[in-house]
Structures are given as C-alpha cells and as structure tokens.
Design a binder for these strands. Structure first.
Lengths: 334, 334
DNA sequence: ATGAAAGCGCTAACAA
DNA sequence: TTGTTAGCGCTTTCAT
C-alpha cells in the first residue's frame, strides 16, 4: 500500500480511501491510484485492516459437520456457502466424525481464526464450552441437533413427527410386526426418532411388544447383521423402519441377501442416493438439508446484523417419498 | 495480551514468549502468565501476529471444487482436510459449478484472504490468471484436471487408460456395437475418456463406425434421453460406456425404462453410490478421489516446505469394479 | 530471563 | 479533497 501511494504520489490514507471505495476522492487522484495499484498488482490485506477497523469482522464462517464427505452434510454445506457468498463471506468447514473431542478442538481452531459465526452439528453431550465465545458476541447456530447447556439458535428436522408419520404409513398398510432399527440412543436425533416411532404405535393401539427395537446400529455392517438376525428369527418383522441413512443401506442389503426385499416393507429416515433405481424403490422420510443449511446461515447473518431476540428453535418438516418399498402390504394371514 | 501482561505483572513480550512456547521463561513467570491468560480467557490473534511475523503464514488452504455437495469432490475435500489438520491448517472450500467466472472470483476471494496454498479443479480454458499468485510464491496444485498456460503440480486420474480398459472389458465380453455417452468434449477429462474409448476400439480392430458416440451430456436427464433414443433406434447398442457419474445414472434410468438393464451391458466411469444394490450391480471404473486429495495436499505442503522442483504431473490409476452390469455378454447372434 | 522500542499494513480521528 | 498522527495486537531486534 505504501508502494502504491508513492507510485501515485499520494498518501497511504488516500490509497486506503480508494481501496475501500470511500467517497471524496478526486476523479483524477482516483485514476492515478487505481493504475498504480494495478501496475503493482496490489491486494489489500484484510487482516491488517481488521486490526484497526471498528467492526473487526473477518467475513468468515466456521461450519462443523459430521463429515464433508457425507451427502447430508454436503447439502447443508452447499446451502451455507451459497448464502455466505452473497455477503462476501468465506466458509471454513471441518469434519467431526461425531467425536466430541474433535468438536472442541475444531471450534477452538475456528474461534482462534476469529470466524464471525459458527454453524455446527454438535455431538457433545452439552455445549457449555461455547459460553466464552457466545459471550464474546459470536453468533452460534446449531443444525440437526439442539444445544444443551447454552442458549443458541437451532435448526432441526422434525425428527419425532417424521418418524411417527413413517410409522403410521407402515401401520396403514396393515403391518403390525414392525422393527425399528436405530442408531445409538444417546444421539439426540436417534432418541427423538425412536420416540416418534413408539408414539405412533401407541396412538394406533398397537402393543409395543409387537415391535422389535434394535439400537446402537452406528454403521451399515452392524445394521445389516442386526436385520439378518431378525429375518432369520422365529417371527421376522413384516415392516422395517430404519431410522438413519446408513442403517437403511444395511437393511437393504440384508433384505436382498435373504430375498425378502419384495415382501418386507421398508421406510428409511433421510433420503438415500439412487433410492428410486432400486427394485422396489426405497420409500423414505426425506429431510431437507438444503433448507436447514440456508436457514442456519440466515440466522447467523441476522444475528450479525444485530438481531438479539431470544434463541430460536426452527423445525424443518420432513417429507414422505413413496417409492414402493414402504407400500408393500402386510401379508393377509397376519 | 496487554491485559494479560498487566495481570501477570510482566511485559507483553514475555506473554508473547509464553504463548509461542519460546524457551527462556522462568517457570514461576510461566505459571503466572498462564494463569492470567486463563483467567481472562485470552486467545492470541493469529492475524495480528502474522502482520509482523517473518513467515507470514495464515495456516489456511483454499480448495476449489465442482461443488461441496458432490460425492467425488467431497471425498477429495475430506482427504485434504485430514492432511491439513495434522499441520494445523484450516481449509476454505468453494463450489465452482464448473463456471470459469466463478472460478476466478473464488480464487480472488481466497488469495485476498492470504491462503497459503490453493488446490483446485479448474474449469477455465486456461489458468494464466493465477500467474501473479504463483509468482508471489503460493503453491497451487490442480486436481482432476491439468493446468494450461501455467506450470503447476497436478494430480489426475488416468482417464484415457481407465476409459480404454473399461472399453476393452466390454469388448472382451463379445460386444461390438458399443455406445459412448460422454460429457462436453471441451472438458478435459471428457476428451481424454473419449480418446481412451476410441483407442481401445482401434486396438481391437473394431471399426469406429460400429460405435455410437453421443456427447454434450452434462446432466442426468439429457443422458437418459440420449440413451432412450438409441435404444429405440434401429440398431441399439449391446453395451454402453457412460463416461461420467451423472451420465451413468441417466443411463441406468433409460435401461430400466425400456426393460433392457438385464441384456445391455453397462460400465460407468467413476463410482456411484449403492451401485452394488442395483440389479444387476453396476460395473464401474472407479476413481480414487481420496488418494487424489491426499496427494494434492502432500504436494502443497511439500512446496510450502521448500520443494522447488519442476511442476509434477501425478497420475492416479483407476480400478475396475465388476458388479454384473459390465459382464453381461453380447447376444450370440450379433 | 526479561523488557523497551520499532514496526507489520492498515484505518480512525482529526486537521489542514 | 487530502494528509498527519496514532494505534490495532502482535513479533522483531536489540538492550539490559
């Protein structure tokens, strides 16, 4: 900047004015400065500016998700990015793999870099470690999971109702022997989906004893084996509700292996790629990660723009997509 | 930092020493500073430090890919992130949607933020716009596509050979009426895959006239329609090579719609989610985005560590995954 | 082992 | 319209 000033024969302050598009610069000066800047291909250093600037914004967002290599998180990421670009913000992303330790480290890495806002899918039991950062004024918005121990905005799917609706769908097709395949119940979303499942059974007057609940299925292989065991058992379920992405895939594999994919109903929570190309197509209760990401980004920017209303919880509905597997009727003799 | 110094009764320089883990600080002083820092929950500002520091590194990488919401790019992203974390680097990601204008903007947004290195999937015809940044010493590594008009490291799949091997696989199963479904030939990878396809035909002595080449298929719908047209034509192909992800999906849909998925062979370039759950399973020539990302990150760090050898081009092999669709034999009467 | 002074590249506040 | 001075939070250099 000093060099530009010298070359243009003005003071640094004038260059600063030009760079920041401040008014009250004579057209002739403006031109001289501009051409000097171009000649030296000058790029202003935003970090240096921020040091002195009053708002002290880095125009940077931190996004913490399960993994950047994961369709659900990718869709959120994309939506956040699209919102950020319009405001001149860049996005840091970090994969947590549902590891609470990694979460604190990653948050620290971002706050040290002075991100202006944080969007995160937490997997810690509680997030009071964010207190200092929140007090400092950084907007924090939770996605997919609600915070515990701290008051922040959250954007989540309607897990309980979505699960209940999926369950009702199976019941409506005549099923009574349902299996619920779920992730670790400690994971907030998993707990809510289970609750939705049970409530739907209760409301339909189906004894809970008629359903099998298998949990702690944190990956595809485990889910597959669990369902294989059920299918090989004395009273295999006539319908399966797989409460998560990877579990759905494991369930698909198990059904195929036993050749039961045409007579056992299946609904998965969260959509799965190419689900419509399977035979039968896989019925799912789809989430809307793009909406979740977009809304979360909007919340962050609203907070940055001065919104200091109480923490909000925003729920995004889920959508049933019928593709065949969920519409398989219960066998008539049941 | 000044506050910490006051509270600990030392000078700022001493606090600086403690924060940076420099030696020659008396244990007692160290303890006083540490507790003062903890009490004020002090976070050093890396940007301020960089201003004066000799190396001037932001410990930040810029990653430019087609879209963060895309499995291939996601895998690259994850590999880059994993490599970056170990070195204390954070990663900015930006989606380009194969838009050359967006590319220049995004690069500018990152260089303005003083990223220490750049990893990008370019879609511009040539990348000389990166010249100034490269001259400034920023390592730039291309992934998936080679650079034009500038000498930089590149990590790419062996597109031509992969496509040739896929084609040979189809020929080995007796097919002679092959269809090539490709993306816009202007896209570098698309051009190479086409070349590989044609070379394999040539080497097998199959007249190119026996093959149908359809290009400019930039999305699923267009690909589907193109194949439907071929299937409905007078001499439908007995084998299809779909040279890209989305095209493979479009082709799958078309084959299913016409009920030809069990007698028409199909190999796709690039793996597809749940390909093994289809019926038949989808044979693909898989790329290794995780290796590509990892190697690219290693190149960046090697450059940052002072490697000033000439620009390298690193080729990552592709892997044939046989799942059924590619092994369908040609009808005997052909 | 510790500190004082200067300065990184920029902007705020005020002056001319 | 333009320039001057001070200072953001830190690290460098050189003293002590």
């Amino acid at each position: 900047m000093r060099q530009v000033a010298e070359r243009a024969g003005v003071s640094v302050k004038t260059v600063s004015r030009v760079v920041n598009g401040e008014p009250s610069v004579a057209p002739a000066t403006l031109r001289r400065v501009l051409s000097a800047a171009a000649a030296l291909d000058f790029q202003p250093d935003p970090h240096a500016g921020n040091l002195r600037r009053s708002d002290r914004r880095t125009r940077t967002l931190g996004l913490l998700i399960s993994s950047v290599d994961n369709p659900f998180a990718g869709a959120i990421h994309r939506a956040v990015e699209d919102a950020a670009i319009g405001r001149g913000f860049a996005v840091f992303a970090s994969s947590l793999d549902d590891d609470p330790e990694r979460e604190e480290e990653a948050v620290a890495a971002f706050t040290r870099r002075r991100v202006d806002g944080l969007i995160l899918t937490t997997s810690a039991q509680e997030q009071s470690y964010l207190e200092p950062e929140v007090r400092r004024g950084t907007p924090v918005v939770f996605v997919d999971r609600r915070p515990t121990g701290i008051a922040c905005d959250a954007v989540v799917s309607d897990n309980a109702e979505g699960a209940a609706a999926a369950t009702r769908h199976l019941l409506a097709h005549g099923h009574r022997r349902l299996a619920y395949l779920g992730d670790r119940p400690a994971i907030q979303t998993a707990g809510e989906r289970r609750r939705g499942f049970l409530e739907a059974l209760g409301q339909a007057g189906v004894p809970v004893g008629d359903a099998v609940i298998v949990e702690d299925l944190h990956d595809e292989t485990v889910a597959r084996k669990a369902l294989l065991r059920l299918l090989d058992g004395p009273e295999p379920p006539t319908a399966v509700f797989s409460a998560q992405n990877l579990i759905t895939i494991g369930a698909l594999r198990a059904l195929r292996e036993r050749g039961r994919h045409r007579d056992t109903a299946l609904i998965g929570f969260d959509d799965v790629a190419l689900a419509d190309l399977m035979d039968p197509g896989v019925t799912v209760m789809a989430q809307h990660p793009d909406d979740i990401g977009r809304i979360a980004a909007e919340r962050v920017f609203a907070r940055l723009d001065g919104d200091d209303s109480p923490a909000q919880r925003i729920t995004v509905d889920t959508t049933l997509i019928e593709r065949g597997s969920g519409e398989i009727p219960a066998p008539s003799n049941t």
